[in-house]
Structure formats: structure tokens, C-alpha cells
Design a protein around this nucleic acid. Structure first.
Lengths: 132, 132
DNA sequence: CTATATAGGTTATAACATTACAATAGTCTA
DNA sequence: TAGACTATTGTAATGTTATAACCTATATAG
């Protein structure tokens, strides 16, 4: 699978960021690369999401590069979001995934895409709070 | 805890719906009850969410009454969302909750509010698909 | 080479959410 | 009960996120 130049621009930008970016922030940052309208950004994002290379953080209306692009077709996409430092961490947890699948079977729900977003305080920010 | 009349209007409306409602839909429906601006709705929603009586569906930018208001302080809020019939079902799963808490301990993340949103096809819509 | 699918360009507009500032109503206590 | 405090409400303006509609260009398979 080969990305187009626009797709590559957006993915590269997201990969070099640690935080999430909104579509409009991406637009501003890529104006010099020929992006002129929001829709151009949204279309590229849609494609990258479909390819599993980018995720949308539902609770933040923003986007982030996938940290595990090698895990193709992982339908459970999970993040911790620190409300202090705003650090976003994607994680995978086998047991959680299995328990979720089990429950989906018991209720006969055919799962096709799951988002787990956990807000709170990361380990580092907890230490910072003790100090201050 | 006693709700104000505006808070009661919004909660009542959400309780009688099965689907989610956007803030602007709520505004339209409650115009005859003195709601005139989006902010009035958002403020009431914020309060009801804080009280645990309403949840926000992050992936849909919309709101729904809590199906388990008696479970106070449940920080894991989970839904299945059928993409065909748009039915939203809130659920609680003890094991899932426990596994999540375990993992939060291993990574030293202090969890303060978690959203789980599962998209797919509900049991009923799967049957409908077989027929048609 | 031409049909089809995918990607891109542009304008306008829809949908969702917040800032800022002022006023009012309820609650507590001195 | 007056004064102080807190939560709620009113209103206008604005900011942010996302899509519709229509058209053009490029790539690829038969």
C-alpha cells in the first residue's frame, strides 16, 4: 500500500507529534504543502483511519498516529489521556480484549470497532502533585 | 439532591427517548419551555453529567440518560452502538471493569473517568440481514 | 485507449461548543 | 434579617469542528 503525497504529509505530521492534533491544526500546519480547505484534511484523515494508521480521539475531536500500525485490524483502540500533561498513550491489553469479545458473544453483538478512552492522571503527574 | 426545573426538563426529555439527542436537538425540543440559547442546554447537560444522570456519547457528540443512575460513581461508562438501527445500549460488566482497574494499577495510571464505545451490529439487525 | 475507481480542488454551509458579561435566586451565617 | 457567598440563568457574540455539493484530475485494469 502506497500513500499519496497528501496522505504522507498528514501522517508524517502526526507521527512527529506526541499530542493529538485537530483537523484544523493540521490544516494550518500544512498550508505550505498545498492544503487549503478543511475537507482536504478530513478526506486524508478518513483514509488513514480506514488504513489503521491514524485514530480519532472521540472525546477530543482530534487525531493521532497509531502507535501499533503493525497490529493490523485491531478493532479495540484504547488510550489513556492525562488531564494534566495531556499526554496520550495508546495501549493494547490482551485480557481486556478477550473479555470484551466474550461479552460481545454473550449479548450477540457483532463488534466492528471499539474505542476505549481513559481520562485521569498519569504516573508522572501523580509524582509532580506530591512534590508541589 | 433536587434538580432545578431546567435540569428536570432536559433529564425528562432524555429519559423518554431511546436514542441519543444532540444539544441542539434538545434546544429545539425545549424551546417552548424557555430554552433559547445553546449555552442554556450545555450548562444543564454539564450539571447532569456531573451528577451521573446523563452521559455524553463521545463518538456521536450527543447525550443520553444514564440507564443505571443507582450505580453512583461508576467511572467506566460503556455502550454498544448499532450502526444499522442506531440503538444505544449502556452496559456494565464486572470482569471488564476489574481487568481495567488491574491494568491501570500496573501502569500506575490514576483513572478518573472512562468511556467505552462499541460500534457494530446488534443481534436484531443481524437477523434482519439474514432475512433480506 | 477507455471505463472505472480513487483522489483532489473549491465554495458554502451545517453542526457543535464556548467566552464574556450581566442578572437572579437560593443558602448560610453573623 | 442583612450581608456574603454560591449556584443558576439570560443573552449576544464568537469560536471550533465537520460535511454537502459539484466539479476536475490521476491512476489502473481490461
Amino acid at each position: 500500500m502506497k500513500l499519496t503525497s497528501k496522505q504522507d504529509s498528514v501522517l508524517s505530521l502526526l507521527l512527529q507529534e506526541k499530542k493529538t492534533l485537530s483537523a484544523y491544526t493540521i490544516l494550518e500546519r500544512l498550508r505550505h504543502q498545498g492544503f487549503r480547505a478543511p475537507l482536504q484534511v478530513y478526506r486524508v484523515l478518513d483514509k488513514l483511519i480506514e488504513l489503521g494508521l491514524v485514530h480519532r480521539l472521540e472525546s477530543m475531536n482530534s487525531f493521532i498516529a497509531c502507535s501499533y500500525p503493525q497490529f493490523e485490524n485491531h478493532t479495540l483502540i484504547a488510550f489513556t489521556i492525562c488531564k494534566h500533561c495531556e499526554n496520550i498513550t495508546e495501549f493494547h491489553n490482551k485480557i481486556l480484549n478477550e473479555e470484551l469479545n466474550k461479552y460481545m458473544q454473550t449479548i450477540h453483538f457483532q463488534e466492528e470497532g471499539t474505542k476505549l478512552e481513559i481520562r485521569g492522571t498519569c504516573a508522572l503527574c501523580q509524582k509532580r502533585q506530591v512534590i508541589s
